[in-house]
Design a protein around this nucleic acid. Structure first.
Length: 415
RNA sequence: GGAGAGGUGGCCGAGUGGUCGAAGGCGCUCGCCUGCUAAGCGAGUAGGGGGUGUAAAGCCUCCUCGAGGGUUCAAAUCCCUCCCUCUCCGCCA
């Protein structure tokens, strides 16, 4: 949620951002609604103040004088009820409209509206010019089974098997160890969350169709640990000295992948369920931009240690999620497809989530909404696929990068 | 799943219709005293919105005692619905 004060202090800043995103939000209607709401609120408050004042007088009266006073204020009471009802209606309209407004795009976010407009920042590593694709490799090595997964769960699911399953646990622990060394607190959060957590993180209302629901219990399956980690401090006022708070959350992630029919149907590149280690940070607003770069640096070190060629892209404004002001993706090279594809991502969501979740910090200037950031440390499934493709050998085996061997206990996966 | 208890400010905890945004305690902040990792004394200390103000301060005002609705001139206090937490029993990874 953006700061509603901006609507009257600097609506043009919002307009610029909406334009860069290609957003359809009706800013003028929102500004008008805000104005209407405030004047209605003013009227209601004046009436209510009078009512309370008279109430205090009545408290001191007795007998007939009291009866008369009570009779005299009945009309005022009904006016109060009417005007506050009006304020409530306007307020709820306003709140709903405000939830639809995406965060203000950062000045240095890339311009444009689609993936095509993402700006490449750098490339690292020597890409292989050819190789088998991950679906073929996974099947031949006997470590990924999507055929039987379809029987059990439908499309876009997979079994990891044998060394593939062990590789998963190795990656999780390897990533966690790195993050702990970086000062992150490891967490295993709930993956079933309330609606409030999803609204608070900005996934609702924008991306509601991507989220699995458990209606009977009014819970939702989180698509990322970002959701329970962000909501962890809901309604809290953090001590300035405790910031930044850095969490590393491991969770299984669930995504409906609605609207992706026909995309990435082979293998387990795009699946409904995968595991991920996610970084999440609560920080003083003035430090969030620097922290964003820091998260990217952590991600680069991790991918680099796996000896996977990659590039970093600055995501185009129109391709950003509602909560992000700026986002970097790391795209790993996939020789089977001869292209770079997203394996991690990190976003600065500034005060957007924190305001919705009411997470503040104490400062000399009073309480201030904190900033939050999130970044992928290791999306396990995709990382396994990137390892398979980039470390495949001519004999059909796959070598495990040396950084991982202490965790896997083996250095090669053979057919 | 069954039975019961309870949700009040950073924490604990009083408050069953009016002057209560709320006693008291703890914690914290500032000051005094003492001179020594303490005790004592005094003051301050919930959050949020709107208005006014160049800004800070200040001032005016409204909302918030789990959430929502209702009764009433007036609700932390009465009524209804919901949510959550805890305890015991049952079941269970």
């Amino acid at each position: 949620m953006i700061d509603p004060r901006l609507l009257r202090d600097d609506p043009e800043a919002i307009r610029t951002s909406l334009t860069r995103r290609g957003s359809k939000v009706d800013l003028d209607a929102l500004v008008a609604l805000d104005t209407e709401l405030r004047s209605a609120r003013q009227r209601a408050e004046e009436l209510r103040a009078r009512q309370k004042e008279i109430g205090r007088e009545i408290a001191g009266l007795e007998g007939e004088a009291k009866e008369a006073a009570i009779a005299g204020v009945a009309q005022l009471a009904s006016e109060v009820k009417e005007t506050t009802g009006e304020v409530d209606r306007l307020e709820s309209d306003f709140d709903m409209a405000l939830l639809e407004v995406p965060n203000l795009v950062a000045p240095d976010a890339a311009d444009g509206f689609t993936e095509e407009d993402n700006v490449e920042i750098k490339r690292v590593g020597e890409p292989l010019t050819e190789g088998a694709d991950h679906a073929t490799l996974g099947e031949k090595l006997g470590i990924v089974d999507t055929i039987r997964a379809a029987k059990v769960s439908g499309s876009r699911f997979g079994y990891l098997k044998g060394k593939g399953a062990l590789l998963e646990f190795s990656l999780v622990r390897w990533a966690m160890d790195h993050l702990v060394a970086e000062g992150f607190t490891p967490m295993v959060p709930p993956v079933l969350v309330r609606e409030e957590a999803l609204v608070g993180t900005g996934f609702f209302p924008e991306a509601r169709e991507q989220v699995y629901e458990v209606p009977r219990d009014e819970l939702f399956l989180a698509g990322t640990a970002e959701v329970p980690l962000a909501a962890y401090h809901t309604d809290e006022i953090l001590e300035g000295g405790d910031l930044p708070l850095r969490y590393a959350g491991f969770s299984t992630c669930f995504r409906r992948e609605a609207g992706t029919y026909g995309k990435d149907t082979a293998g387990i590149f795009r699946v409904h369920q995968f595991d991920k280690v996610e970084m999440f940070v609560f920080i003083d607003p003035q430090d969030s931009a620097a922290e964003h770069d820091r998260l990217l640096a952590v991600e680069e070190r991790l991918v680099g240690e796996l000896e996977i060629p990659y590039r970093v892209v600055n995501i185009a404004a129109g391709d950003l999620g509602a909560s992000a002001v700026k986002k970097y993706d790391i795209e790993a090279w996939f020789p089977g497809e001869r292209r770079y594809r997203e394996i991690t991502s990190c976003s600065n969501t500034t005060d957007f989530q924190a305001r919705r979740l009411r997470i503040r910090m104490k400062t000399d200037r009073g309480n201030e909404v904190v900033h939050t950031l999130n970044g992928t440390a290791c999306a396990v499934g995709r990382t396994i696929l990137a390892l398979l493709e980039n470390h495949q050998q001519s004999d059909g085996s796959v070598l495990i990068p040396s950084a991982l061997v202490p965790y896997t206990g083996f250095d090669v996966i053979e057919p």
